[in-house]
Design a protein around this nucleic acid. Structure first.
Lengths: 233, 233
DNA sequence: ACATTTGATATGTAGTACATAAGTACTAGT
DNA sequence: ACTAGTACTTATGTACTACATATCAAATGT
């Protein structure tokens, strides 16, 4: 249908509601005043009056900021600014069932890009204990059934992210897991690269960053191969 | 202060408001019914009654979902599900001035990881036109002043993301720009790697993926060097 | 059959009222 | 004078009502 395509190309006139405007105004206000986490905001009634809207509308906007973790409110104590919960916010919208196919594919690729880029951090931060942990995970894999292998796969790659010592990265990965899993289930057959987890650990232990990147590529190669087929252009 | 550390360790008792609960219930409801974008939801009054809350509270919850792009509402037409605006949502909380130092650092590293991992996609998707574009950007750099060089830096790396053909990745990068910029301004001196943009283009043109990864690492080396100093552990 | 008007209806906004939690001030008792 | 306990105050949380506005649907007229 031509109409369908049309409605995708030019997104509809989003009539801004007062809540939208107030949300924006509050953001600006916070920035302009360069408030920092812990600072307290005026009371609802004052804000509402200052903005010329009902307390109702103001509360809708505040409710949004509260959801993002930008403000916290306690009865009688008023409102205070807080640090937004970045990962938590992202989690709210990362539902594989709602995201469109192209974006899912994009995110799948994003994960591959991340794993290929981990090498630097891994080699500069790995410890002997980390290697041992990885070895233990990789070893368990032998002769395990399918469902266990999937769990192990997650554990192994999860551990890699953990080694980077980058907590945001790690949580980001956990967040992407369901999406990754969802895309993988769409594949026809289980994909296994030539390079196994045990190989990767060995490289991490005795090899170089370059070796690891090549190894990781081989490990992920089945996924990369799927990509090169012209997917959804 | 001991008190400060304490309040960081055990996060405060978040007293859930009705809006919080209703937001969650609506999410569950949408999932359970496996609604898809385009499907229409019951009217506010019906939902409010079914949930046993005032229309006010329900609207606060809906306002949140609207912000995330999960639902759209038109007067009289009722509410319809929509695809959440992932990047737009993330943008809302990625304000360098509010994010804490550790997370900023984490995100900075995330960007480095991404750039190191781009090679595969770049080499499988680059076109001759892309190379020409990159060359043009890299060439402009010669003999330019500082502010222009920064803009050019952004343009070059932005173009790299663009070549991947991954729109989500590209927008993600744009989103991270202010953060990257912010962290860089905290550095003492301008950082320049041994490998220039022109070198990178040349590798992309005639070299291999491995060459490119090594080149990119050298290009980003000043940043990586900063990391290896034990930062904020 | 088509254009116009009229009416119905769901969302958007405003305003009032009251419950509840949490400071604050005041009182009483040792 | 100091502590404990009480009463008061106040800002947020929730509910309800009322009305404006946009838009779909039906009725009406040509």
């Amino acid at each position: 249908m031509a109409n369908n395509e049309l409605s995708k190309d030019l997104d509809p006139i989003e009539s801004f509601t007062m809540a939208d405007v107030v949300e924006l105004k509050l953001r600006e206000y916070i920035k302009r005043k360069s408030f920092k986490p812990g600072d307290s905001l005026p009371k609802e009634l004052e804000l509402a009056e200052a903005l010329g809207v009902s307390r109702n509308v103001l509360r809708e906007a505040l409710s949004r900021l509260r959801m993002l973790g930008m403000v916290e409110t306690r009865k009688r104590r008023g409102m205070v600014l807080a640090r937004p919960d970045i990962l938590g916010t992202m989690e709210r919208v990362l539902d594989p069932l709602i995201i469109d196919k192209d974006t899912l594919q994009d995110i799948f690729e994003l994960r591959l890009v991340l794993e290929m880029g981990l090498a630097e951090l891994l080699f500069s931060r790995k410890t002997e204990q980390d290697i041992k942990d990885l070895e233990a995970i990789a070893k368990k894999e032998n002769g395990a059934d399918k469902t266990f292998r999937i769990k192990n796969e997650i554990a192994f790659h999860g551990k890699l992210y953990e080694i980077t010592g980058n907590d945001t990265l790690k949580r980001f990965q956990i967040m992407l897991l369901p999406i990754f899993g969802y895309v993988v289930t769409l594949e026809d057959q289980p994909t296994r690269g030539k390079v196994t987890h045990q190989d990767l650990v060995e490289i991490l232990k005795t090899g170089t960053k370059e070796d690891f990147r090549i190894g990781m590529f081989e490990h992920l190669k089945p996924h990369f191969d799927r990509l090169t087929k012209p997917s959804g252009v």
